[in-house]
Amino acid sequence: MNAVVFWIRAYGGALAQLWREPLASLFNLLALACAFGLGLAAVVWLGDASLGRSVPGAGRFAPEVTLVLRGGTGEAARNALERAVRADAGVERVRFVSREAALERLSRDLGEPHLLEGLGGNPLPDALVVTLAADLPAARTDQLLKRWRARGDVDEVLADREMVERMRHVSGTLRLMAQGVVVLLLTSGAVVVFNTIRLQLAGRQQEIELIRLLGASAAFVRRPFVARGTLLALLGAGLGWGLAELLLQRVAGWVGPLATVWGIDTPPASVPPQTGLAVLGIALLLGWITAWLGVRQHLATTDRR
């Protein structure tokens, strides 16, 4: 019970201290918000392997293959084909695009609503758009393409083998970049917290030495600094979440129309709550660890004197 009260008081004190030093606190929080916010946006937008699996749009760089159906393929045959393709290992998603829908989209994309009148008839075929798993091995991709090409109800398989590979590489590289950016930004966040705590410790050197002489334990000395570190990291991550929301909205606004033209998913316009909460948790842990290490290092130096 005592420990809980002490921690509540420590957090109250940390909050009061943040308030007493508004400018320093603001700059620290802004630095942390940038670190956590950009990291969060990177996770959501590019799709991080560990955090972004459940993020909508994380798989938008996964390779797609279009199976153009032979003319006159009936609904029953098309459904059977769709079921068969969906059952193939390595297929993530199958979407039917009717020839009418394809023409409508083409008209829309070209900005020509009366396209059909000019053409005299719809020249486009029905198609199945197949999304392959991003990490599908090249040999398996080749095997699937070969199998689909051999089917009688498939007229053509539009999948450039090199394009599929390129997309896979792009996807992998982007994911790796996202992870790198996240690690870099989290490290920056940790450095900001660590340095802030070190400055605080240096500023309260005399007080720390005195309370150690009066019998304060390491835990007693550590508590307010750990409270300060975790509060700083948590508030920074909270602001970062807000920043990431703004960034994602802006990016979605800019990239959305292009994504439609390229035929890829629109990037997410907001941070999924579970991802945001995960980052808050990481920030809390990071703040705790860095502050704890900072005080430990400081006390080791002070106590040696």
Binding site: R212, L213, L214, G215, A216, S217, A218
Partner: peptide, 22 residues
């Protein structure tokens, strides 16, 4: 150890020549 030493120090009242006030 540091923890036990801290407990010993808590039983001692120190009056410093330079006061060491906060």
């Amino acid at each position: 150890d540091a923890g036990r030493l801290a407990l010993v120090r808590q039983q001692i009242g120190l009056i410093f020549e330079d006061f060491k006030l906060l």
